[in-house]
Design a protein around this nucleic acid. Sequence first.
DNA 1: TCAATTATTGCACATTTGCGCAAATGTGAC
DNA 2: GTCACATTTGCGCAAATGTGCAATAATTGA
Lengths: 96, 96
Amino acid sequence: MNEQELEKLAGLLKALGEYNRLSLVYNLCDCQAPKNAMCLCECCSIDASGVSRHLKVLAQEGVVLSERKGRETTYSLNRKEVAENLRALADKIDID
Amino acid sequence: MNEQELEKLAGLLKALGEYNRLSLVYNLCDCQAPKNAMCLCECCSIDASGVSRHLKVLAQEGVVLSERKGRETTYSLNRKEVAENLRALADKIDID
DNA sequence: TCAATTATTGCACATTTGCGCAAATGTGAC
DNA sequence: GTCACATTTGCGCAAATGTGCAATAATTGA
Protein backbone atom coordinates (compact mmCIF):
# COMPACT_ATOMS: atom_id res chain seq x y z
CA MET A 1 0.00 0.00 0.00
CA ASN A 2 1.71 3.19 -1.12
CA GLU A 3 1.27 6.71 0.11
CA GLN A 4 -1.43 7.73 -2.36
CA GLU A 5 -3.50 4.66 -1.73
CA LEU A 6 -3.25 5.14 1.99
CA GLU A 7 -4.31 8.73 1.64
CA LYS A 8 -7.25 7.71 -0.49
CA LEU A 9 -8.33 5.10 2.01
CA ALA A 10 -8.01 7.60 4.81
CA GLY A 11 -10.22 9.95 2.82
CA LEU A 12 -12.87 7.28 2.45
CA LEU A 13 -12.83 6.46 6.14
CA LYS A 14 -12.90 10.10 7.06
CA ALA A 15 -15.92 10.63 4.86
CA LEU A 16 -17.69 7.77 6.59
CA GLY A 17 -16.49 8.85 10.02
CA GLU A 18 -18.88 11.69 10.58
CA TYR A 19 -22.16 11.02 12.27
CA ASN A 20 -24.54 12.68 9.86
CA ARG A 21 -22.72 11.35 6.83
CA LEU A 22 -22.74 7.85 8.25
CA SER A 23 -26.46 8.28 8.89
CA LEU A 24 -26.95 9.17 5.26
CA VAL A 25 -25.02 6.11 4.21
CA TYR A 26 -27.04 3.86 6.48
CA ASN A 27 -30.18 5.37 5.11
CA LEU A 28 -29.06 4.63 1.59
CA CYS A 29 -28.14 1.08 2.52
CA ASP A 30 -31.73 0.03 2.77
CA CYS A 31 -33.09 1.53 -0.37
CA GLN A 32 -32.99 -0.13 -3.70
CA ALA A 33 -33.70 2.91 -5.83
CA PRO A 34 -31.61 6.06 -5.65
CA LYS A 35 -32.91 8.76 -3.34
CA ASN A 36 -32.93 12.49 -3.76
CA ALA A 37 -31.56 14.92 -1.24
CA MET A 38 -34.91 16.08 0.13
CA CYS A 39 -35.71 12.52 1.02
CA LEU A 40 -32.31 11.99 2.61
CA CYS A 41 -32.74 15.20 4.53
CA GLU A 42 -35.32 13.54 6.72
CA CYS A 43 -32.85 11.20 8.39
CA CYS A 44 -30.61 14.05 9.41
CA SER A 45 -30.89 16.66 12.07
CA ILE A 46 -29.33 19.28 9.88
CA ASP A 47 -30.74 21.53 7.20
CA ALA A 48 -30.76 20.96 3.47
CA SER A 49 -27.59 22.86 2.77
CA GLY A 50 -25.70 20.75 5.24
CA VAL A 51 -27.03 17.58 3.70
CA SER A 52 -26.04 18.84 0.30
CA ARG A 53 -22.52 19.45 1.49
CA HIS A 54 -22.25 16.08 3.16
CA LEU A 55 -23.48 14.34 0.05
CA LYS A 56 -20.90 16.24 -1.93
CA VAL A 57 -18.16 14.95 0.35
CA LEU A 58 -19.48 11.42 0.06
CA ALA A 59 -19.56 11.72 -3.71
CA GLN A 60 -16.04 13.12 -3.87
CA GLU A 61 -14.72 10.22 -1.85
CA GLY A 62 -16.58 7.75 -4.01
CA VAL A 63 -19.01 6.61 -1.36
CA VAL A 64 -22.08 7.62 -3.28
CA LEU A 65 -22.92 8.11 -6.93
CA SER A 66 -25.01 11.08 -7.88
CA GLU A 67 -27.13 11.65 -10.89
CA ARG A 68 -28.98 14.76 -11.87
CA LYS A 69 -32.53 13.98 -12.84
CA GLY A 70 -34.47 17.02 -13.78
CA ARG A 71 -34.56 19.33 -10.85
CA GLU A 72 -33.49 16.75 -8.40
CA THR A 73 -30.26 14.91 -7.80
CA THR A 74 -30.50 11.29 -6.83
CA TYR A 75 -27.92 9.46 -4.82
CA SER A 76 -27.08 5.82 -4.51
CA LEU A 77 -24.38 3.91 -2.71
CA ASN A 78 -21.28 2.85 -4.55
CA ARG A 79 -21.76 -0.45 -2.83
CA LYS A 80 -19.17 -2.70 -4.38
CA GLU A 81 -16.27 -0.33 -4.16
CA VAL A 82 -16.90 0.86 -0.62
CA ALA A 83 -17.49 -2.64 0.69
CA GLU A 84 -14.39 -3.87 -1.08
CA ASN A 85 -12.25 -1.21 0.52
CA LEU A 86 -13.62 -1.92 3.97
CA ARG A 87 -13.13 -5.66 3.58
CA ALA A 88 -9.60 -5.22 2.31
CA LEU A 89 -8.74 -3.18 5.36
CA ALA A 90 -10.44 -5.67 7.65
CA ASP A 91 -8.42 -8.47 6.04
CA LYS A 92 -5.22 -6.53 6.41
CA ILE A 93 -5.94 -5.99 10.08
CA ASP A 94 -7.16 -9.45 10.82
CA ILE A 95 -6.78 -12.27 8.38
CA ASP A 96 -9.19 -14.93 9.40
CA MET B 1 -28.42 0.19 14.60
CA ASN B 2 -29.33 2.79 17.17
CA GLU B 3 -27.97 6.26 17.68
CA GLN B 4 -25.25 5.33 20.16
CA GLU B 5 -23.98 2.49 18.05
CA LEU B 6 -23.89 4.67 15.00
CA GLU B 7 -21.98 7.31 16.89
CA LYS B 8 -19.52 4.73 18.12
CA LEU B 9 -18.99 3.38 14.63
CA ALA B 10 -18.50 6.89 13.33
CA GLY B 11 -15.90 7.41 16.02
CA LEU B 12 -14.04 4.32 14.97
CA LEU B 13 -14.06 5.33 11.32
CA LYS B 14 -13.02 8.83 12.17
CA ALA B 15 -10.11 7.52 14.20
CA LEU B 16 -9.00 5.45 11.22
CA GLY B 17 -9.68 8.24 8.76
CA GLU B 18 -6.62 10.32 9.43
CA TYR B 19 -3.50 9.72 7.44
CA ASN B 20 -0.95 9.41 10.21
CA ARG B 21 -3.24 7.34 12.38
CA LEU B 22 -3.98 5.01 9.50
CA SER B 23 -0.24 4.74 8.91
CA LEU B 24 0.22 3.70 12.52
CA VAL B 25 -2.47 1.08 12.13
CA TYR B 26 -0.92 -0.27 8.97
CA ASN B 27 2.41 -0.40 10.70
CA LEU B 28 0.91 -2.38 13.54
CA CYS B 29 -0.79 -4.74 11.12
CA ASP B 30 2.45 -6.40 10.19
CA CYS B 31 3.95 -6.92 13.59
CA GLN B 32 3.23 -9.85 15.74
CA ALA B 33 4.50 -8.42 19.00
CA PRO B 34 3.27 -5.14 20.43
CA LYS B 35 5.34 -2.09 19.57
CA ASN B 36 6.25 0.85 21.67
CA ALA B 37 5.65 4.43 20.68
CA MET B 38 9.25 5.26 19.77
CA CYS B 39 9.25 2.44 17.30
CA LEU B 40 5.93 3.56 15.85
CA CYS B 41 7.26 7.07 15.65
CA GLU B 42 9.52 6.05 12.80
CA CYS B 43 6.69 5.38 10.39
CA CYS B 44 5.30 8.86 10.91
CA SER B 45 6.46 12.23 9.80
CA ILE B 46 5.42 13.84 13.04
CA ASP B 47 7.07 14.16 16.40
CA ALA B 48 6.65 11.95 19.42
CA SER B 49 3.99 14.06 21.09
CA GLY B 50 1.84 13.88 17.99
CA VAL B 51 2.25 10.13 17.82
CA SER B 52 1.34 9.88 21.47
CA ARG B 53 -1.83 11.84 20.86
CA HIS B 54 -2.78 9.78 17.83
CA LEU B 55 -2.23 6.57 19.73
CA LYS B 56 -4.40 7.91 22.50
CA VAL B 57 -7.20 8.54 20.04
CA LEU B 58 -6.81 5.07 18.59
CA ALA B 59 -6.90 3.57 22.06
CA GLN B 60 -9.97 5.56 23.06
CA GLU B 61 -11.82 4.34 20.01
CA GLY B 62 -10.76 0.79 20.67
CA VAL B 63 -8.51 0.44 17.65
CA VAL B 64 -5.42 -0.36 19.63
CA LEU B 65 -4.73 -1.83 23.03
CA SER B 66 -2.03 -0.29 25.13
CA GLU B 67 -0.04 -1.73 27.94
CA ARG B 68 2.46 -0.02 30.12
CA LYS B 69 5.65 -2.03 30.38
CA GLY B 70 8.19 -0.36 32.51
CA ARG B 71 9.02 2.94 31.04
CA GLU B 72 7.51 2.24 27.73
CA THR B 73 3.98 1.71 26.52
CA THR B 74 3.39 -0.97 23.97
CA TYR B 75 0.58 -0.95 21.49
CA SER B 76 -1.11 -3.69 19.58
CA LEU B 77 -4.07 -3.81 17.27
CA ASN B 78 -7.44 -4.80 18.60
CA ARG B 79 -7.68 -6.94 15.51
CA LYS B 80 -10.84 -8.92 16.01
CA GLU B 81 -13.04 -6.09 17.08
CA VAL B 82 -11.91 -3.60 14.47
CA ALA B 83 -12.13 -6.11 11.65
CA GLU B 84 -15.53 -7.20 12.85
CA ASN B 85 -16.85 -3.67 12.80
CA LEU B 86 -15.49 -3.01 9.33
CA ARG B 87 -16.90 -6.25 7.98
CA ALA B 88 -20.28 -5.60 9.52
CA LEU B 89 -20.41 -2.24 7.82
CA ALA B 90 -19.26 -3.73 4.54
CA ASP B 91 -21.99 -6.34 4.81
CA LYS B 92 -24.59 -3.72 5.57
CA ILE B 93 -23.53 -1.75 2.53
CA ASP B 94 -23.16 -4.66 0.21
CA ILE B 95 -24.41 -8.08 1.07
CA ASP B 96 -22.62 -10.48 -1.17
C1' DT C 1 -43.70 34.01 -18.45
C1' DC C 2 -44.14 33.14 -13.76
C1' DA C 3 -44.40 30.49 -9.67
C1' DA C 4 -43.00 26.40 -7.28
C1' DT C 5 -39.66 22.87 -6.23
C1' DT C 6 -35.04 21.09 -5.53
C1' DA C 7 -30.34 21.81 -4.87
C1' DT C 8 -26.26 24.43 -4.28
C1' DT C 9 -23.31 28.28 -2.88
C1' DG C 10 -21.54 32.40 -0.17
C1' DC C 11 -20.87 34.03 4.12
C1' DA C 12 -20.08 34.09 8.97
C1' DC C 13 -19.36 31.73 13.08
C1' DA C 14 -17.97 28.46 16.69
C1' DT C 15 -15.62 24.35 17.29
C1' DT C 16 -12.44 20.88 16.40
C1' DT C 17 -8.23 19.17 14.76
C1' DG C 18 -3.32 18.30 13.94
C1' DC C 19 0.99 19.97 14.91
C1' DG C 20 5.56 21.44 17.20
C1' DC C 21 7.91 22.95 21.06
C1' DA C 22 9.01 22.91 25.72
C1' DA C 23 8.05 21.28 30.17
C1' DA C 24 6.47 17.73 33.10
C1' DT C 25 5.80 12.99 34.34
C1' DG C 26 6.77 8.18 34.95
C1' DT C 27 10.05 4.47 35.18
C1' DG C 28 14.19 1.75 35.31
C1' DA C 29 19.40 1.59 35.73
C1' DC C 30 23.32 2.88 38.20
C1' DG D 1 19.21 9.97 45.00
C1' DT D 2 20.70 11.01 40.08
C1' DC D 3 20.60 10.25 35.45
C1' DA D 4 18.79 8.65 31.10
C1' DC D 5 15.04 7.18 28.45
C1' DA D 6 10.05 6.96 27.01
C1' DT D 7 5.88 9.12 27.13
C1' DT D 8 2.51 12.52 28.08
C1' DT D 9 0.72 17.15 28.77
C1' DG D 10 0.22 22.32 28.38
C1' DC D 11 0.20 25.91 25.30
C1' DG D 12 -0.41 28.36 21.17
C1' DC D 13 -1.50 28.51 16.42
C1' DA D 14 -3.09 27.81 11.79
C1' DA D 15 -6.08 25.17 9.17
C1' DA D 16 -10.03 22.43 8.58
C1' DT D 17 -14.76 21.28 9.69
C1' DG D 18 -19.78 21.39 10.51
C1' DT D 19 -23.53 24.31 10.67
C1' DG D 20 -27.48 27.77 9.69
C1' DC D 21 -29.26 31.43 7.12
C1' DA D 22 -29.95 33.81 3.09
C1' DA D 23 -29.26 34.24 -1.69
C1' DT D 24 -28.73 32.03 -5.99
C1' DA D 25 -29.06 28.62 -9.53
C1' DA D 26 -31.50 24.96 -12.20
C1' DT D 27 -35.48 22.89 -13.75
C1' DT D 28 -40.35 21.71 -14.17
C1' DG D 29 -45.17 22.72 -14.68
C1' DA D 30 -49.22 25.77 -15.06
